[in-house]
């Protein structure tokens, strides 16, 4: 119960960065027109901000958290250090997840024709920025 309360408080604090994170997601989509959706989620799978992933954002965030858990364990077990990113290529496009600071991730959906090199360059920059925003929001003391 105490844990649940703490998580809720944490999420509330993270949500204070929502507007700025959303601006960053829109900027990213403007730079990469072949993105079909973008969302930022907390590492435990709750949506913090999303752009054009309507309807399925919650489940994408939850699945991202599950994939993140496996990715982290896989990187750790094989001695590759902390989790950085995960790229899934399906028949009809890509799903990419990037670590954004210590407690959030950036998940992007893209068309199959996207320039993956550019996707990585832009998304790494954006995830670092989003990480700063979310970590910054967590550090700010809750006024209540």
């Amino acid at each position: 119960m105490r844990r649940a309360l703490r998580l809720r408080a944490e999420r509330r604090q993270m949500m204070t960065a929502e507007a700025e994170v959303l601006v960053e997601l829109r900027r990213l989509r403007a730079r990469l027109p072949q993105l079909t959706g973008a969302l930022t989620a907390s590492a435990d799978g709750l949506v913090l901000a999303q752009d054009a992933v309507d309807g399925e954002a919650e489940s994408v965030a939850a699945l991202t958290a599950a994939a993140l858990g496996v990715g982290q364990r896989l990187a750790d077990t094989t001695g590759q250090g902390g989790f950085r990113e995960l790229l899934v290529r399906g028949e009809h496009g890509y799903v990419a997840t990037y670590a954004a600071g210590g407690s959030a991730v950036l998940t992007l959906l893209a068309e199959p024709r996207i320039n993956v090199g550019r996707l990585h360059l832009e998304a790494r920059r954006s995830s670092a920025r989003i990480g700063e925003l979310v970590d910054g929001a967590l550090e700010r003391r809750d006024p209540n």
């Binding site: 320039n115 993956v116 090199g117 550019r118 996707l119 990585h120 360059l121």
Partner: peptide
Amino acid sequence: TSGMALGTIGGGKELDLNVAAAG
């Protein structure tokens, strides 16, 4: 087809070849 470099040589600080590959 992906924008990724299969291999690079040289470049260094003044020319990031992965950026060049994608661009």
